[in-house]
Structure formats: structure tokens, C-alpha cells
């Protein structure tokens, strides 16, 4: 009874309330920033905020599904970097961008497939596998492009990636993101595929016994994650008009922090995409504000790291409190932990 029903019930209600709380916190942070941070509320800054957050948001979509299923992919930023690097290298070779982009996306598919096959065929833990490929993909990116920076991509592409809809603060690129978000929400919360992911994350063996094709689903997820990472890599290179091997370095930290902050349980089986996206934009808003008030990039990483720890710790502490309360309500003291997982 490592996990008594009482703790479980408490955890469930905590995860439900948690994503609501993160949404509310996002609203509060935005309101405070509008009120008190100079330069926050103008259209240009808001479009920066969204544009800078989009890479996190794009990868957070598949990452949410992965974490729900009990897996993780830390190689996403390296895949994005590799895509950017290949994009630059091929551009230097004189290929047209209309050919280069599909090639990069295909490369992302391959990167994701490699992760997925290592995890599902060899049964290795995804944390270990993707730490390995995180280094490997980044290394290949450096081999491909060296220390070059490619910047002279076609203007209409750069304009699309950096521009915003006339008269608003909304970047063009936000619109396709909304479409992808809708797809992800439906896939996770309304389709059998997503329903099965929750089952896999909460009880993989029972999911297998229910005829769910666990390995296949995971393989698909890793592949889609690779695809989305390379899409993000392409977007990044165009958005910042710079393809370098170290593009998106460290982005995986932000993505994971945002997703966990949004209430996706690191142990799998719990959370909502709404919460995850609220987490993403909360993190994006905080990073934006920190830049405005001149917090250095290094310190921002520290803050992100702290947020990561808090978001893993937060739900657990909240759960403990609510268990204690539920226990008192039921007229009993908080129960002592008895060790006892089942095989």
C-alpha cells in the first residue's frame, strides 16, 4: 500500500486543481506585468513574448503526450538544433528552401524513430536513451555546420517566421500553432489513442492486457516528437534568421519545466494539455519579464531550474497536505507510509 486509495484520490483532485491554479497564476502574472513592468504591454513586446515562447510550446505538445505515457524525450532541443544546422548546410549547398524544409522534417522523423526504437525494441529507459541522443544529435549538428552561422534565407520565409498579423501583436506562426494545439488536444483527450496513453502511464501492464499496443503507441509518439522538434528547429532558424549548430541549446529544460509546471505528473497517467500550455506561457511570460528587467540569461536558466524543481515538488506537497486534511476529515491521523509496491 505504498499508495493508499486516499492518497490516490487526493492526488487526482490535486492534479485537477493544479492545472486550474497554473492557469490562474498565468493570468495574475500577465496582469501584474501589464501594470508594473515597463515595456511589457506594447504590441512589439507581446509579439516577442509569443514568438519566443512558440518553440517551447510547439515541442510541449508532443512532450505532454510522452510524459502522460510515462516517457520523456530530452533530445528535442538537439533535434531542433540538428535540423537548423542541416538546413543551413543545405542552403549553403544551393538547394532550394522548398526542398530543404521537407528534408529537415524527415530528419526529425528519423531522430525520433531512433529514440523510439531504442526505447521500445531494446527496452531501455527513455531518460537514458535521450540523454545519449541529446549529445549525439548536437554533435552531428556541429559536424554538419561547424561554427558557421547561415542567415541569408529567403525573405518571405523570414518575414513569415518573424512577422505578425497586421495591426495586432499576434505572430503569423501562432495560427498554425493553434491548429496543432487543437489536434493535440483532440488526440490526447478525445481519441482512443490518448485515452490509451493515460492507461499506459498509469498501469502499463494492465494496458497491455487490455490489448493496447503499448510499444506501437510509444514509437508513434517518439516519432511525432522528433518531427515537431525539427519543425521547431526550422522555425527557430527562420524566426531568428540564424542557423547555427547550437540553436535551441537547453530548450529541453524549458519544455520539461513548463510541462511539469502545467501539472503533468512526471510518473505518467495524469494531466491535461490545457495545464501544460498554461505552464508553457507562464514560463514564457516570466522569461520575457526577466529580460525586460535585465536579468541575465544565466540567471534565467537558474530560475527555470528552480521552477522545474518546484513544479515536481509542488503537487507532491499539495497532495500531502490534502491527504492530511482528508485524513483528518475522515477522523484519522495522516497514515504512516507503509512500503509495499506490488510487482
Amino acid at each position: 500500500m505504498a499508495d493508499s486509495p486516499l492518497t490516490r484520490a487526493a492526488r487526482r483532485s490535486v492534479s485537477l486543481r493544479w492545472d486550474g491554479a497554473v492557469g490562474a497564476l498565468l493570468v495574475v502574472v500577465l496582469l501584474l506585468s501589464f501594470g508594473f513592468v515597463d515595456g511589457f504591454g506594447n504590441a512589439l513586446n507581446l509579439s516577442f513574448l509569443i514568438g519566443n515562447t512558440l518553440p517551447i510550446a510547439l515541442i510541449a505538445l508532443p512532450m505532454t503526450l510522452l510524459v502522460v505515457s510515462g516517457e520523456i524525450d530530452l533530445s528535442v532541443a538537439s533535434t531542433a538544433g540538428l535540423s537548423g544546422a542541416v538546413m543551413g548546410a543545405l542552403w549553403n549547398q544551393g538547394m532550394t528552401i522548398e526542398v530543404i524544409i521537407p528534408v529537415c522534417l524527415l530528419l526529425g522523423v528519423v531522430c525520433g524513430l531512433v529514440n523510439g526504437l531504442l526505447v521500445t525494441r531494446l527496452g531501455l529507459p527513455s531518460l537514458a536513451v535521450t540523454i545519449g541522443t541529446m549529445a549525439a544529435y548536437r554533435g552531428i549538428a556541429q559536424i554538419v555546420l561547424g561554427s558557421d552561422a547561415v542567415t541569408d534565407f529567403p525573405a518571405q520565409y523570414l518575414d513569415f517566421a518573424a512577422g505578425r498579423i497586421d495591426g495586432t501583436f499576434v505572430p503569423y506562426a501562432f495560427l498554425p500553432f493553434l491548429v496543432l494545439l487543437a489536434v493535440a488536444v483532440v488526440a490526447l483527450h478525445a481519441m482512443p489513442f490518448g485515452r490509451a496513453l493515460f492507461a499506459i502511464g498509469a498501469g502499463e501492464e494492465a494496458a497491455r492486457f487490455a490489448g493496447i499496443r503499448v510499444k506501437r503507441q510509444k514509437l508513434i509518439l517518439f516519432t511525432v516528437t522528433g518531427l515537431m522538434s525539427s519543425l521547431t528547429g526550422v522555425f527557430w532558424a527562420l524566426h531568428y534568421a540564424s542557423a547555427r549548430y547550437d540553436n535551441a541549446m537547453g530548450l529541453e529544460l524549458s519544455v520539461v519545466a513548463a510541462v511539469l509546471l502545467g501539472g503533468i505528473d512526471f510518473d505518467g497517467g495524469k494531466g491535461t494539455l490545457g495545464g501544460a500550455i498554461a505552464g508553457v506561457f507562464l514560463l514564457g511570460a516570466l522569461q520575457n519579464v526577466m529580460s525586460l528587467v535585465n536579468v541575465s540569461a544565466q540567471s534565467q536558466i537558474v530560475v527555470t531550474g528552480v521552477l522545474l524543481v518546484v513544479s515536481v515538488l509542488g503537487p507532491r506537497v499539495a497532495r500531502q497536505i490534502s491527504v492530511a486534511r482528508a485524513g483528518r476529515r475522515a477522523g484519522a491521523a495522516p497514515r504512516s507510509k507503509t512500503p509495499a509496491p506490488t510487482p
Partner: peptide, 29 residues
């Protein structure tokens, strides 16, 4: 506990787990 049920999921969802292919309309649960 390990094979028959996902302990953290509801009664409804557990019974529904074997019907993910049949209780589907337009691709949605």
C-alpha cells in the same frame, strides 16, 4: 491489480478500456 485494472483510473474508464475500438464515433471516444 497489475494486469486486470489500472488502479488509478475510474471504474468507468477501466471497463471502457476494452471498448476503445468499439465505443468510437467519428474517430473520437
Amino acid at each position: 491489480r497489475a494486469q486486470g485494472l489500472v488502479m488509478d483510473m475510474s471504474i468507468e474508464r477501466n471497463i471502457g478500456l476494452t471498448g476503445l475500438r468499439s465505443s468510437v464515433r467519428a474517430g473520437l471516444v
